[in-house]
């Protein structure tokens, strides 16, 4: 059977508990007497499809699924990861300070060329802010990675974050491909393509 996509990217969401990695606006409802079957057993990963510069990209997104409570994530979890979203909560100083620990953990366990991005989440809670935007930007510069403030709850810039990460992974792959198979003519990759309208799933209240 023909492949139904152009690229498959494995992405990880990493950060302290409670930073809103799995905040959902609408969740199939629970009440005093009932629980939902899925929330009891938990979600392993999700598959999302996005259209990026005319290419169909499948994202397989894994959450740390509670492993973060142990402050370390094993090598097995990082295996095959091409992109990592480092998420902190702008209303929680500690979650920001821990980003450094997460980066160290990534450097020790993940592939060296994994594409990383820093996300300051919950930016809708301006009155409770503990971490300034400048500090987020500074940390990102220090590590040479991209930075964005998002609100999963108010669906602000979450889509932009995923598109940016996916676009950077795609560019890196195409560069590698080009290097191992140089074009004969004067062909050049376009540095940037026009932004496309994000699909609806990204405008909902969930990073995962």
């Amino acid at each position: 059977m023909a492949k139904t996509y152009d690229y498959l990217f494995k992405l990880l969401l990493i950060g302290d508990s409670g930073v809103g990695k799995t905040c959902v606006l609408f969740r199939f409802s629970e009440d005093a007497f009932n629980t939902t079957f899925i929330s009891t057993i938990g979600i392993d990963f999700k598959i999302r499809t996005i259209d990026l510069d005319g290419k169909k990209i499948k994202l397989q997104i894994w959450d740390t699924a509670g492993q973060e409570r142990f402050r370390t994530i094993t090598t097995a979890y990082y295996r095959g990861a091409m992109g990592i979203m480092l998420v902190y909560d702008i209303t929680n100083e500690k979650s920001f300070e821990n980003i450094k620990n997460w980066i160290r953990n990534i450097e020790e366990n993940a592939s060296a060329d994994v594409e990383k991005m820093l996300l300051g989440n919950k930016c809708e809670l301006e009155e409770k802010r503990q971490v300034s935007k400048e500090r987020g930007e500074q940390l990102a510069i220090e590590y040479g990675i991209k930075f964005i403030e998002t609100s999963a709850k108010a669906s602000i810039r979450v889509e932009e974050a995923f598109f940016t990460l996916a676009r950077d992974i795609k560019a890196k792959m195409e560069k590698k491909l080009e290097a191992s198979n140089p074009p004969k003519g004067g062909h050049q990759l376009r540095a940037s393509e026009p932004q496309r309208k994000p699909p609806s799933w990204l405008s909902r209240c969930t990073l995962l």
Partner: peptide, 18 residues
């Protein structure tokens, strides 16, 4: 969405509202 494994299965969920 794919749930955690139960026996030989994973259960499928909506990726948005779960």
């Amino acid at each position: 969405g794919f749930s955690n494994t139960v026996g030989d299965n994973k259960y499928l969920t909506c990726a948005d509202c779960e």
